[in-house]
C-alpha cells in the first residue's frame, strides 16, 4: 500500500512540461496527401499568402492564442515575427485591401487538433508532448518539415 502510494505520488509529480528545444509538430488533416512542407511554404500558409492546397481544399490555419510558448516559437522561426508583429501584419494587410485572413485562434492544443481533424484543409501546430501519433489525436497527422520528422535531430521547428 505504501508502495502504491509512492507510485501514485510519482505519477502525479511527473507532468509534461514544455522545455526549450522541444519540437513543435505541424499537423494537417489526415485526408490531406501532403507529407512534407518547407518553412517557406509554412510561412505562406500561415500568413494567408496561399489559400488552396494542391487538392483544391481551402487552407484553414489554426493556432493557440497569443502567449502560448509554442506559438511564440513558431512565429519567430517561421514568420520571423513576434505575436504583436504578426497581428499588426494582418491589420495592415486588411488596411491595404489584401485578401488576408489571420489563422483561427483556439484555446488549447486539443482544440487545435479538433479543428484540424474536422477541417479538410486544416493545418496547425502543437507541442510534441501534445501529439501522440498513435491514432488518438483525432483525424490529424504530422508532416515533415524540410524533410525531417519531429523526432529527427535535424528538425528545425523547436521551442
Amino acid at each position: 500500500m505504501v508502495t502504491l502510494g509512492l507510485a501514485l505520488l510519482s505519477a502525479i509529480t511527473v507532468a509534461p512540461v514544455a522545455a526549450a528545444g522541444d519540437p513543435i509538430v505541424v499537423i494537417v488533416n489526415a485526408a490531406n496527401p501532403v507529407e512534407n512542407l518547407t518553412v517557406g511554404e509554412l510561412k505562406k500558409l500561415f500568413m494567408s499568402d496561399r489559400s488552396k492546397w494542391d487538392t483544391g481544399k481551402s487552407v484553414a490555419p489554426v493556432m493557440v492564442v497569443a502567449g502560448a510558448p509554442e506559438r511564440t516559437a513558431f512565429l519567430k522561426a517561421v514568420c520571423g515575427m513576434s505575436d504583436a508583429d504578426f497581428t499588426k501584419y494582418f491589420m495592415q494587410a486588411a488596411f491595404a485591401g489584401k485578401s488576408a485572413t489571420p489563422p483561427k485562434e483556439v484555446g488549447s492544443a486539443a482544440a487545435v487538433k479538433a479543428f484540424v481533424g474536422g477541417s479538410p484543409g486544416g493545418i496547425g501546430f502543437v507541442k510534441a508532448g501534445d501529439f501522440h501519433g498513435d491514432g488518438s489525436d483525432g483525424g490529424v497527422k504530422a508532416v515533415k518539415i524540410e524533410g525531417a520528422a519531429a523526432s529527427d535531430s535535424g528538425y528545425k521547428l523547436k521551442m
Binding site: 507532468a15 509534461p16 512540461v17 514544455a18 492564442v65 497569443a66 502567449g67 502560448a68 510558448p69 505575436d83 504583436a84 497581428t87 499588426k88 494582418f90 491589420m91 486588411a94 489571420p102 484555446g107 488549447s108 492544443a109 486539443a110 507541442k127 508532448g129 501534445d130
Partner: peptide, 22 residues
C-alpha cells in the same frame, strides 16, 4: 476550468487590451 484543461504551465496570454486587432 480553462487552466485545468492545459496541464503544461504556460505564460498567461496578454489581455485583449494589449494586442492590436481588427
Amino acid at each position: 476550468a480553462a487552466v485545468a484543461a492545459a496541464p503544461a504551465p504556460a505564460p498567461e496570454p496578454p489581455s485583449a487590451m494589449e494586442m492590436p486587432a481588427v
